[in-house]
Design a protein around this nucleic acid. Sequence first.
DNA 1: AATTTACGCTAACAAATGTTAGTACAAAAG
DNA 2: CTTTTGTACTAACATTTGTTAGCGTAAATT
Lengths: 196, 196
Amino acid sequence: MGRIKTENNSTRKDVIIKKAAELFKEKGFKAASMRELAEVVGVEAASLYNHIRSKSELLHLICFNVANRYNLMMDEVEAEKTTSLQKIEKIVRFLIGGMVHNFEEVYVSDREWKYLSEPYLSNFQAQRRAYRKRFAAIVEDGIKKKEIKKIDSTTAVLIMLHAISGIESWHRSKQKINGKELEENMITILVGGLKK
Amino acid sequence: MGRIKTENNSTRKDVIIKKAAELFKEKGFKAASMRELAEVVGVEAASLYNHIRSKSELLHLICFNVANRYNLMMDEVEAEKTTSLQKIEKIVRFLIGGMVHNFEEVYVSDREWKYLSEPYLSNFQAQRRAYRKRFAAIVEDGIKKKEIKKIDSTTAVLIMLHAISGIESWHRSKQKINGKELEENMITILVGGLKK
DNA sequence: AATTTACGCTAACAAATGTTAGTACAAAAG
DNA sequence: CTTTTGTACTAACATTTGTTAGCGTAAATT
């Protein structure tokens, strides 16, 4: 077989990571084998190791790529001088966008992170906790300012994050409404459910 | 080692299924091995096969147990003569209760069903689809009767189901509010987000 | 053109997996 | 007490797994 085909200025490693995200999404990290990944990439299994260190490296590259993007977004939102509800809406829209346009990667980061190996596992979990805390703080702030119903902020965050990760079902579904429409519907229900 | 200890009038098979649900929840179906399960049960791996046919039998027993309960609940709700919003509230409360009190089993059925083998996989998916359709029909009905905001019913169902399955995080969380409080908060946000 | 690097291949490995065969013995049934 | 059944054990199996070693050649660099 020939070489791994790259396009634009992505490396061969990038190609492998992309295909890995698709495979891990479809089969789950544990069930996906390196031989399957190799076949999708168009190469023998052993050849993958010219580009990557291990299977678990693939997982942590995927997970931390997503986590970093989320953290950056959160920095941006916190810096804004807008109402809490507007901040929440921005976060939710960002997350929905991620689920719609970077589906595989986000999905894997969401569902397969528990197979990360140490020290990445602990690091990832810490980042996740911190991120949720920041999100909850915004909700809390909105409650104090009476923009938002008096509810448990942790539960509100939990609902939003998981509702969004459910976009997975939307991807699978046959008769799907378009992405923009999905986003507006989700905002209506989620943000609408918070508003006082 | 001695025999598998049963209590009340549960069979040894029941004990294995229960432990399997816990293990599958913790490690994931693929990552959980029969040798690990055996250790938890207090027996050698080969001994499990005196009670069960295969690893995958365990998974489908767990999944269909949950699916059957859900279908029965749905029959009951549909038969009621109440408003759509009341029906939805009842469904949501039932689902939350399941996540709180039968956590392992429900979690496994929710996240690991894709590892079912045929023909169980197709059967399960069909039941899942049907169940969601029934749920969406109730939402649809509420929209027609102007009890509920004009939204895409499929999206509404997706949000509710996934928000509820996110109770997983609540289980993991250290400083958790109690189950009843969680339920009321979820109802406020979810049902509140639908109400016109 | 000559040399070095990148990258593909085949072959093989040790470990882990689900599962079966065959055996021994305790509990239940007669 | 005797027989039968249920259930646990050890040993072994064929596969599948991630990964490494060693080799050859095409591409890149000089």
